[in-house]
């Protein structure tokens, strides 16, 4: 049991982050939870001796995924705001 305690802990973290990612409804909150899930996954891959996969997850999940999610959120909000302005005119 002692040998793979890190694996058990990492799996627990991924489970918590994954559940939170599913339960989060608002895209802005989801972006933050996705970043947390990415970190938990990277730790799991590192503990399972897969550093290349962990590095890929870190490279993409730390800065790129939140940026794309939040840019899409901004685009959707801008479209909603301009449509609301059209209704008022």
């Amino acid at each position: 049991m002692g040998g793979d305690l890190p694996v058990v802990v990492a799996l627990l973290l991924v489970a918590v982050a994954g559940t939170a990612a599913v339960l989060a409804r608002d895209p802005v909150r989801q972006a933050a939870v996705l970043a947390g899930l990415g970190l938990a996954l990277a730790l799991l891959f590192a503990v399972l001796q897969a550093p290349d996969v962990a590095l890929s997850q870190l490279a993409v999940g730390t800065a790129l995924t939140p940026l794309m999610v939040l840019l899409s959120v901004r685009k959707v909000r801008r479209k909603a705001r301009s449509e609301r302005r059209e209704e008022h005119e």
């Binding site: 627990l12 973290l13 982050a17 933050a32 939870v33 947390g36 970190l39």
Partner: peptide, 19 residues
């Protein structure tokens, strides 16, 4: 062991703070 401790004591609360 230190890594597991840091994960449970530090990373888990931070993760809950994110969620």
């Amino acid at each position: 062991a230190a890594a597991c401790a840091l994960l449970l004591v530090g990373f888990l609360p931070a993760l809950l703070g994110i969620c």
